[in-house]
Design a protein around this nucleic acid. Structure first.
Length: 209
DNA sequence: TCTACGATCTTT
DNA sequence: AAGATCGTAGAT
């Protein structure tokens, strides 16, 4: 099994961490996923971020130390996985929006009641379901042995960047920020149609180096 | 307390 | 185009 992404990997701006996370592996109870799509959020200066109303009981983990998880419930149904970045006391995180299954695909299908092709892990709610997450995962450290681990993986050659999804409530300027990143050339990406407007760029830094 | 609504997904 | 489904935040 590849080494953990160290705590220091996360102790940077979420904007730098987000693209570097593409290709990394999420390990959870026999299931291994490769991250293919992420979004960066950070406060201040981003009204799409959950920290926009300050520190609350719900978003407490978002302000926690880098390299920990922030899981929240969306639409009363979906458990969304964020990886906390920056320094402790800041409110920054990277949302995992899509993954490619590496191992444990059978367990994931069972969990979801069978069926499905490439749409299996495209979308943050589906990722949360595949990893069987709940709110108790908030605050867990991801850089050491545990129920949820993140390890080094093969980075994609090219990265797509574009505006984030599902943040209509944010200020227009923040809505337009190209803080959504996806590995180019894989089917493991959500809302493919909106990817067409994205610009192709070369990956800035190697993952976990 | 009450109410509106969400970093979504599925079905119609 | 809209329902599922429920915890949170802001208002009362």
């Amino acid at each position: 099994m590849p080494p953990f992404l160290p705590r220091s990997f996360y102790a940077r701006d979420s904007l730098a961490v987000a693209p570097d996370l593409l290709g990394a592996l999420i390990v959870r109870n026999g299931v291994v996923l490769r991250i293919t799509e992420v979004e960066a959020y950070r406060w201040p200066g981003d009204t799409a971020c959950h920290a926009r109303h300050g520190r609350t009981e719900r978003n407490a983990a978002l302000w926690g130390p880098p390299g920990t998880a922030y899981v929240y419930l969306c639409y009363g149904i979906h458990h969304m996985l964020n990886l906390v970045t920056g320094a402790e006391g800041e409110a920054q995180a990277v949302l995992v929006r899509a993954c490619e299954p590496v191992t444990g695909l059978a367990a994931i299908r069972r969990r979801r009641g069978g069926g499905d092709g490439p749409a299996l892990l495209t979308g943050p709610g589906k990722v949360g379901a595949a990893l069987d997450l709940d709110l108790s995962f908030s605050g867990r450290r991801l850089y050491e042995r545990g129920l949820l681990e993140v390890r080094r993986g093969e980075p994609p050659v090219h990265v797509l960047a574009g505006p984030r999804v599902g943040i209509a409530y944010a200020e227009p300027a923040h809505r337009r920020m190209p803080w959504r990143f996806a590995a180019a050339g894989t089917p493991w990406v959500s809302l493919r149609r909106r990817l067409r407007a994205m610009s192709v760029s070369v990956r800035p830094t190697p993952s976990g180096a």
